[in-house]
Simulated assay, not measured.
Amino acid sequence: MTLSHVTTAHRLELARQLVPWVAIGVPAAALLGALAFQYIGGYPPCLLCHWQRYAHLAALGLALVALPLSGGARRFATIASALALLAGAGIAGFHVGVEQGWWAGLPGCSAPDIRGLDVAQLREVLMQAEVVPCDAVAWSLFGISMAGWNLLLSALVGVAIVWVVALGSRRRQA
């Protein structure tokens, strides 16, 4: 049987069966990639990078919860996983805007204000944890930063999951 002989219903059913594995695999791969960039590549994450990781952790957790479920509960958890990916895409989009200078980052995205500090206060500030700026592009591929790639991946996969699950639910009701 060739792919041209497969009906739309069969393709949709195949997509529905793959959705939970995609919902697990994409955030897991993104998290592993981020950790590899950090610990192997030497690219420490900024505050917004951490927030994007939290979105992937939420998406992964919800997808793992969905896997043993069935019916409406599985659809709900899978959609929730996709929404976590879309929230991560929103954070990544904000991060891209900070990198491009379209808007200012958050207070934790830059070095603290040291104006007016005495020497003891300045020493204390400098001894605190390293600040990784959110507006500096540490790595890019084809002119797209890591935040940009995360935006594209998270948005595409999040929308695809919602579409397949919603389309599958609508077809079952018809």
Rank of each mutant, 00 (worst) to 15 (best):
G71E: 07
R53P: 00
L156Y: 08
C46N: 15
L122Y: 12
A63G: 15
A129C: 01
L32I: 15
A138W: 12
A166M: 11
V119A: 09
P112I: 11
I79H: 09
V19R: 01
R16N: 12
A166T: 12
W51R: 07
E130S: 10
A34Q: 06
Q38N: 12
A77D: 13
A160P: 01
A34V: 03
P45E: 04
V26W: 03
A34Y: 00
A82N: 09
E99C: 04
C46P: 09
A30E: 07
G105T: 08
V162T: 01
Q121W: 03
G168T: 08
A155F: 13
A87E: 12
G105N: 05
A58D: 03
H10L: 10
H50M: 09
L35W: 15
T78M: 08
R170N: 03
A30D: 01
F142H: 11
I114T: 09
A9P: 00
L126Y: 02
N150G: 13
E13R: 10
L47M: 03
V65H: 05
R74S: 12
P44A: 01
E99F: 07
A166D: 05
L152K: 02
S140F: 00
D135V: 08
V19I: 06
A15I: 13
C46E: 02
A89K: 12
V157T: 14
A160Y: 06
V157S: 09
S110F: 03
H95M: 01
Q173P: 00
V159R: 00
D135L: 05
L117C: 08
L35D: 07
A29S: 14
A58S: 14
V137Y: 04
D113W: 14
C109P: 00
W149P: 02
L35Q: 10
R171W: 03
A63R: 11
E13C: 02
L156V: 10
Q38D: 12
A80F: 04
P107T: 12
W149S: 00
N150T: 14
P44H: 04
V132H: 06
P27D: 07
W149T: 11
C109G: 07
E13Q: 09
Q17K: 14
L31N: 02
L48G: 01
R53G: 07
S81N: 06
V65N: 06
P68V: 11
A55D: 10
V132I: 15
D135N: 15
A89T: 08
V165S: 05
G42A: 13
C134I: 03
S70Y: 05
G71D: 08
R172D: 12
L62H: 14
Q100N: 15
